[in-house]
Amino acid sequence: MASISPGRPSDDGSPRYVVNYRDPEGRQRRKTFRRKAEAVAFRNTVEADKLRGTYLDVDAGRISFRAYAEEWLDSRTFSPLTYEATELRLRLHVFPTLGHLELRQIKPSTIQKLLRSMEMAETYRRVIFSNVSAIFSAAVDDDMIAKNPCKASSVTRPATSRRKVVPWPTEWVSAMHDALPPQY
């Protein structure tokens, strides 16, 4: 159970309150507040989150997007070609914008800026967006962050283009059939 104790007074003489608690892994943690009401609210939230199983370590999201994305990429069971293509997309289009930011700093508005900065075909933007979203989903699953910023309602996903399938004329099919080697 978390406890609240008086801390050292601040420089201006006002009181401080320290919340001491253990995280789900058993590590001792503490956080200091200026007002007792804030300390009580934090203590109650931490204890409720631990009981619900939704507690997130405040230090977990401090890893950079680039470092986490590289770990994520190394853990994938992609074919070598898919790995190479995904790494290239991240390196060229995502790392320059998001690579230096910590996971916890990336908000839906940051994702919108990334999408707005990519001037390329809609289908390619969609592939890049799905790679970034998969990385954030893995970070949520690993309890690094609470929510995937790509799945926020304020993020406008790249549009899907629906092309109408136009069948070949009969002459083209016949010509292709005639051009095939006999074994096919």
Rank of each mutant, 00 (worst) to 15 (best):
A60E: 10
D178E: 15
R163N: 11
D11Y: 04
N20F: 15
R126Y: 02
Y124K: 01
V58L: 15
H93G: 00
G26T: 10
I4G: 01
L103K: 01
A175P: 07
Y17N: 06
S109H: 09
A37M: 07
L88I: 10
N44P: 04
N148K: 09
R104K: 05
R34W: 13
P96E: 02
R27V: 11
S133P: 01
I106M: 06
S109W: 12
D142F: 05
F33E: 01
P181D: 05
P108S: 01
R162M: 08
S161D: 14
R116C: 09
P158G: 04
R125G: 02
P181E: 02
A159E: 15
R91E: 09
R157T: 14
E171L: 11
M144Q: 08
T82F: 01
V165W: 13
A37K: 14
T170A: 15
G13N: 00
A48V: 09
R29G: 10
S137W: 02
S79G: 11
V19F: 00
S161R: 14
A134S: 14
V40S: 13
S79T: 15
K107H: 10
Q183W: 12
G7F: 04
R29V: 09
P158T: 09
A41F: 04
F42H: 13
T32Q: 04
L98T: 08
E71Q: 14
R8E: 03
E102F: 05
K151A: 10
T77R: 15
S137G: 08
P15G: 02
Q28C: 14
P108C: 06
D142S: 08
E25V: 08
